[in-house]
Write a protein that binds this DNA or RNA. Structure first.
Length: 802
DNA sequence: GAACACTGCTTACCT
DNA sequence: ACAGGTAAGCAGTGTTCT
């Protein structure tokens, strides 16, 4: 029988003195399948090993084979020994006895080592034989095969079974009352809950395990399961004398890898909270807040703080509430398309789904790079941990003069760092003192003619692949097909842009700081050259950040501005570097600080573009963001200075006055911030957000490091300022410090408004402004900005507005 | 003693 | 355990002005 399937997760285990690799799959037909691979042994390389070492290894009963290889290591060909051993778990023992740098490829997870060597990808074609009944009983999948033949298959999509769960347990004694679940299987949504009339906890857990076995899900998910539900389940199973919680497809249990990352063989564990944090960046991260925001639905009304009484008095409601939680988490995950995204990354990085979703960025790069290195007999060094080096210099950011500008053209280099790597042949395999390509840092790389770097060639391939997917998306005949290719091209883009980061990191196996430094140096040189050239032509360059350049169009009409933008973009696109004409902003405003601007895009589509400002920040309170937004609206839409002033000054004053008078809904004053592990702070005792986290824990609410907490400032005159937690659904009784809030609003608005002084010429010209005497506009004075070093100015105070 | 300047720590953002 | 560059708020400390 031949199966086409996606590899959900891969693991290995010992069986009768043999290491077996398990590939846990879901087939095209929707069958769950375990493919068992026999006969693959772990190995590593030793660089120029002394004869003595080889002799020792030859006599080692755990060493199966020693072969000679010539590998390219640190710039030259070296004699190496490939050492094949019996057990994967023994590899660390061998590598720790070898001097640094003399051991290669001894830190690659064994299941990935196999994946790379067999050149597999997310989608595979498997042929094999059914195993005997006894072996089959060790797995939960529909089919268990011993693999005869396996090969990569062209990517396809398979609907996965996703299992979301939620636990309600007693606060007093930790005991589990109910476990609910919501399962997506095809188009079906199955919802139910497990509890016991006699409150037999062991029975609840055992029935939960049965449900997992029955539905055999590919993904286990839930809201905050990593920090809460899984630890509770694991602990309660232990307390009940359950030896292994057979959740895995190999009947294994959860294991924790690095702090809060849970894994279980055969399934992908996804914490919806993590996905939400990453994709949505919401102001608050509670399930209720996110569900409301994303699905327009709220949780049922059960008081979790009084769960013991609730369970006694309104059991049905608690069960319903619990089911709803599991369902909401599932639907949020679907809304975020997190699994699809993971499948796309896995497909282009050629990894099992779990490694693509829960793995590190370096794993994605490893997957491409190690295969290519092996093909070309290039030694694969190990990652080097510890040792923090001096950071390399990053991107160039052009300082920005405060003001309102018109007809601003934005261009940016497409995939700038990957383009530089390709065009300058930057790679650890081309790094050489007698290279012909010299970076501004003085580091040299060999020309393509002498040696094509493996990183540049991989990136070139990815670029071509991305173009191909883009073409297919364009030609797609259905919306579904278009979305499919669009997902893949986006995954390739993410992958390409991840290369620079790992090469600039201090621990990655192929990293050399000289490489990362050379990339950014070329980038700075390039963008500075664009800026200088434009300025020489008399074009006013307004701003630039890393790979983008904002400049004023000499033409104040759409048709000619577009033509000009296209002309500039075309002119600076060369040597594989493509400058793209991104948009026209009319008008464009900044108060003179880098990474903060706002503009009205009029081409290619109409939209408001805001970067950096409080409206983008999750730690600003809504009232502050909304007030600033009103000001931006006025700035972007006023016909002239008079209209702007008429609109905005009195309105700003009014908003601040309202704040001072407490005429603000309390929920618009909520401030939220993330809180790390308490131990990680230098001095946690005076940080408002940390105090809030401690307080909500003391009140019995869930808090897990990394979570956002919310509060309201009630007295800012005290040091440290006095704050109180703000908890949804709980009435806030204290009085906010309205003066504090008014001052914060005043600060935010004045930063922007002080750009507009009384000098009529300076307004709406976008030209550099001259210093203005403050006049009847209260404190909205404008100061001259000179190059990099802005002068210190007097802080505007609340009184300035009154 | 209030006001201010400056530093260190912290978070979130931009590319 | 993918990078660096940047703004801004708060606490603490030292300095200056009143």
């Amino acid at each position: 029988m031949k199966y086409e399937a996606v590899v959900i997760d891969a693991s290995y285990h010992e069986e009768n003195d043999e290491t077996i690799i398990n590939l846990f799959c879901r087939t095209k037909e929707g069958i769950s399948l375990t493919a068992r691979v026999h006969g693959f042994d772990p190995y590593f390389y030793l660089v120029s090993p002394p004869d003595k070492v080889i002799d020792e290894l030859k006599n080692d009963k755990d060493v199966k084979k020693i072969e000679k290889y010539t590998l390219f290591v640190r710039g030259i060909e070296r004699e190496c020994a490939k050492v094949t051993i019996r057990y994967p778990y023994k590899v660390p023992e061998y590598r720790k006895n070898v001097p640094e740098g003399a051991c290669l490829a001894a830190d690659i997870p064994f299941h990935l080592r196999y994946f790379f060597d067999a050149d597999l990808s997310l989608c595979v074609e498997i042929e094999g034989n059914d195993v005997d009944a006894e072996t089959k009983s060790k797995y939960t999948t529909d089919i268990v095969l011993d693999v005869e033949k396996i090969s990569p298959a062209t990517p396809f999509k398979v609907p996965l079974t996703v299992f979301s769960f939620d636990i309600e347990n007693s606060i007093r004694e930790n005991r589990i009352y109910v476990i609910s679940y919501a399962i997506r299987k095809g188009n079906e949504l199955i919802k139910d809950a497990i509890w016991s009339d006699t409150d037999d906890e062991r029975e609840i857990i055992e029935r939960f395990v049965e449900v997992i076995k029955k539905y055999d899900p590919d993904v286990i998910t839930g809201y905050n399961i990593g920090g809460y539900d899984i630890p509770v389940l694991t602990e309660r199973a232990k307390s009940n004398g359950i030896k292994t919680l057979n959740i895995g497809r190999d009947m294994g249990t959860f294991s924790v890898s690095q702090e809060r990352f849970w894994r279980v063989h055969g399934r992908v564990v996804i914490d919806v909270w993590m996905a939400v944090k990453l994709r949505l960046r919401p102001k608050q991260e509670t399930l209720n807040f996110v569900a409301k925001m994303l699905l327009g639905e709220e949780k049922d009304d059960v008081n979790r703080l009084k769960i013991d009484e609730e369970w006694k008095n309104r059991r049905e409601d608690v069960i319903r509430y619990c089911i709803k939680d599991a369902e909401l988490a599932l639907r949020i995950l679907e809304e975020l398309a997190e699994i699809n995204r993971g499948m796309d990354i896995a497909a282009v990085a050629h990894l099992p789904l779990d490694d693509a979703i829960n793995g590190r960025t370096s794993t994605l790069i490893d997957s491409l790079l190690i295969r290519e290195a092996d093909r070309r007999n290039i030694g694969v060094p190990m990652n080097k941990y510890g040792g923090s080096e001096t950071p390399i210099e990053g991107g160039y950011v052009h300082s920005i003069q405060p003001g309102l500008y018109h007809w601003v053209i934005v261009c940016d280099f497409k995939s700038m760092y990957p383009s530089i790597i390709i065009s300058k042949n930057i790679c650890f395999t081309t790094l050489s003192e007698d290279g012909e390509i010299e970076s501004p840092t003085g580091v040299r790389f060999l020309s393509k003619e002498r040696r094509v770097g493996i990183v540049p060639s991989i990136l070139e391939r990815l670029m071509a692949q991305r173009d191909e997917f883009k073409k297919k998306a364009k030609r797609a005949e259905s919306a579904e097909e278009k979305a499919y290719y669009d997902g893949l091209q986006n995954a390739v883009k993410i992958l390409m842009n991840s290369f620079y980061g790992v090469f600039a990191s201090s621990f990655y196996r192929f990293t050399d700081k000289k490489i990362g430094g050379a990339i950014t140096a070329f980038a700075r040189e390039n963008i500075k050259n664009v800026i200088a050239t434009l300025e020489n032509e008399g074009i006013k360059v307004i701003y630039s950040d890393t790979d983008s350049v904002f400049f004023q169009s000499p033409y104040k009409n759409l048709e000619e501005a577009i033509k000009f933008g296209e002309e500039v973009a075309g002119r600076f696109s060369k040597e594989g570097m493509s400058l793209e004409f991104e948009r026209i902003l009319e008008p464009f405003f900044s108060h003179g600080k880098k990474k903060r601007y706002v503009g009205k895009a009029i081409w290619p589509k109409e939209e408001i573009v805001i970067r950096g400002y409080e409206t983008r920040r999750t730690d600003a309170f809504d009232w502050q963001s909304e007030a600033l937004m009103e000001v931006f609206d006025a700035i972007l839409n006023s016909k002239d200075e008079k209209e702007l002033k008429a609109k905005v000054i009195s309105r700003a004053k009014k908003l601040i006055e309202m704040t001072l008078n407490g005429e603000v809904p309390i929920e618009k004053l909520v401030i939220s911030r993330s809180v790390r592990d308490f131990e990680s702070y230098k001095d946690a005792s005076r940080l408002a957000h940390v105090e809030v986290a401690k307080q909500i824990m003391a009140e019995g609410y869930e808090f897990i490091p990394g979570m956002k907490v919310s509060w309201i400032v009630v007295d800012a005159r005290k040091t440290p300022q006095k704050v109180e937690p703000y908890i949804e659904g709980k009435e806030f009784r204290s009085k906010p410090d309205y003066e504090y809030y008014a001052r914060r609003v005043a600060m935010t608005l004045s930063r922007v408004l002080e750009v507009f002084g009384y000098d009529e010429d300076s307004l709406f010209t976008g030209s550099r402004q001259t210093s203005l005497a403050s006049g009847s506009l209260d404190s909205f004075e404008v100061e001259e900005k000179r190059d990099e070093k802005p002068q210190q100015k007097k802080k505007p105070t609340l009184e300035d507005f009154m």
